[in-house]
């Protein structure tokens, strides 16, 4: 019981955003008995409240990197810490949003989001309050009772973001969150994501292959090059938000990143 209370208290008093540090992180997969390096010596510091986008061609290990930070894969070399505490396994202080929304088709939106609070053993009323609050934040409060198949792709992805945020994580990890959406919905959700980030001030690491998305969203864009995945460049985007995609500076950032990706 004390444990539960402590968990609840630590949730309530958790810092809004977290500092993420990777130092010399390397990862190999075993393929046909041979070790295939996917990530090599990744070192990266993410300040609290920072919005970081990791871009790279498919197969450069960017999703693997995200899975390591999420604690879903503990088999790597190097140091990985969150607020100076080493990452060992998954934790609810890190919310995650997958590329496919991965909502459970047999649960309503509300129940899907509430599932992320299971481990906290909150009283039902508190749980419902938090779910409602986060659904309001993503603009889905009128769809709490809907099933995933009744939602459009963009709405389903917003529900997934709500699920990622409901445990009030200090770090939100997103793996190609808008990759499966049509371009209009994607642009709209990018704006929504910035609005949510400004409200919550959570640290965000988003992985994407869409350079424009990275420049539009992030404070810092990390460019990965493949075989094995290494950091090719780290660019700070010095533009105030909301960013105009036709602004010459925006176009220049895009061109710069694309050039680095092509090499």
């Amino acid at each position: 019981m004390r444990e539960v209370l402590e968990t609840v208290r630590s949730v309530a008093s958790a810092p809004v955003s977290a500092r993420l540090a990777l130092h010399g992180v390397s990862k190999c997969y075993e393929v046909d008995g041979r070790l295939l390096p996917v990530l090599e010596q990744i070192s990266l510091d993410v300040a609290d409240g920072e919005f970081v986008a990791v871009v790279g061609a498919s197969g450069c290990g960017k999703s693997t990197l995200l899975r390591l930070i999420a604690g879903l894969d503990a088999d790597f070399e190097g140091k990985l810490s969150l607020d100076d505490k080493p990452v060992r396994g998954p934790g609810l202080e890190r919310g995650i949003v997958f590329q496919d929304h991965r909502l459970l088709p047999w649960l309503t939106v509300e129940a899907n989001v509430g599932l992320a609070l299971t481990a906290y053993a909150l009283p039902a009323a508190e749980r419902a309050r938090r779910v409602t609050e986060v659904l309001e934040l993503v603009g889905l409060d009128h769809f709490a009772g809907a099933y995933p198949h009744q939602l459009s792709g963009g709405m389903a992805q917003r529900a997934a973001i709500a699920r990622g945020l409901v445990s009030q994580p200090s770090l939100l990890l997103m793996d190609e969150p808008f990759g499966a959406l049509d371009s209009l919905t994607r642009v709209y959700l990018q704006e929504e994501l910035l609005r949510i980030w400004e409200r919550r001030r959570v640290t965000v690491v988003v992985v994407t292959h869409d350079v424009e998305e990275a420049v539009f969203l992030a404070d810092t864009v990390v460019v990965l090059e493949p075989d094995p995945g290494r950091i090719a460049a780290r660019l700070s985007i010095q533009m105030e938000r909301p960013r105009d995609r036709t602004d010459p500076r925006f176009v220049a950032y895009k061109a710069d990143i694309l050039r680095r990706l092509r090499r």
Binding site: G71, L72, P90, G91, R102, L104
Partner: peptide, 20 residues
């Protein structure tokens, strides 16, 4: 499909069995 999700949400095995 749902293993990573269950792991990321720290679902206890009973919830995992019943809900997932």
């Amino acid at each position: 499909v749902y293993q990573e999700l269950s792991a990321a949400l720290l679902l206890p095995w009973r919830v995992r069995l019943r809900q997932v």
